[in-house]
Design a protein around this nucleic acid. Structure first.
Ligand code: SF4
Ligand code: SF4
Lengths: 133, 133
DNA sequence: TTGAATTTGGACTAATATAGTCCTATATAT
DNA sequence: ATATATAGGACTATATTAGTCCAAATTCAA
């Protein structure tokens, strides 16, 4: 299964929600309630989006989140890396190559796998959040 | 992480191995030894490929596997479904929709996610094993 | 200045999926 | 007969993903 993680799906829904209520601050609680997304989990996700400068956050009473960029300026790829940390299709292609696949020496498909990775990356980079709102 | 499963990687290596030793029967043991792939696991994978008519198997002494199709006639997509059973990027897009995402009623991104799924599928269908050998 | 609403973030547990193992049956060439 | 193969069910181990819990910091406003 080549799954988009639930977290990324939640992020997409949240961004759509925020985008739809334009310019008003939106709270995590509000999104959680309206979209049936677990509150604590959603909070973490929104925080990550804030750390990637996709969202702006305002703490305290009457606080909440708002978009920091136009939706068409946020590639799906960035969202995915922001949330899941890595988008490599194979162990040996991980950014932080701490882990190295034990077959790395005898592997006969590294090159074509790398090419495939590139193509998938290009696809995810070509999509933006505006395609989901 | 959008990972190609290790099983699919093993399948690709095995198919390359079989393709390289053209027309001679190749045993699971041989591939396992030469490629450092766990024997039992590889056996299961080859069996699945046989059940999908990608390989032909010969039981008994001097038995082994051979290709049933040219490598450019085997889409990567078919390999993935044969081995991992499903390639849907979201729960609600599974073939056997026994499981249904609990958000299915309130979900706001089903349509674009379906479109993305289609594009990924097309990419995996356009690749064939010949791209990996 | 107190309190409620909010984000922040670490640490943890639970659920699921992937990877790998073990064992037995069946087929076949010699 | 027997050694060498594939066939396949049932199981265990590991890794990843999903979800929870708790305490802190920030801000507004009564
Ligand atoms: S099997 Fe090959 S392509 Fe896959 S992770 Fe290991 S080295 Fe990389
Ligand atoms: S969240 Fe939406 S797109 Fe994702 S699985 Fe559930 S219904 Fe499908």
């Amino acid at each position: 299964m080549i799954r988009i993680s639930k977290k990324v799906e939640y992020a997409l829904m949240a961004l759509k929600f925020i985008s739809d209520s334009d310019h008003k601050l939106v709270t995590a609680r509000e999104i959680s309630d309206k979209s049936n997304i677990p509150y604590d989990l959603l909070s973490k996700i929104l925080q990550k989006l804030k750390n990637e400068n996709i969202l702006i956050s305002n703490q305290g009473m009457n606080g909440g989140y708002s978009l920091n960029k136009r939706t068409d300026e946020i590639p799906l790829f960035n969202l995915m890396t922001a949330i899941d940390g890595d988008t490599s299709i194979a162990e040996c292609l991980q950014d932080n190559s701490v882990k190295d696949c034990c077959l790395t020496d005898t592997c006969t498909i590294k090159l074509p796998v790398t090419r495939l990775q590139k193509e998938l990356e290009d696809l995810f980079k070509s999509k933006t959040i505006s395609d989901f709102v």
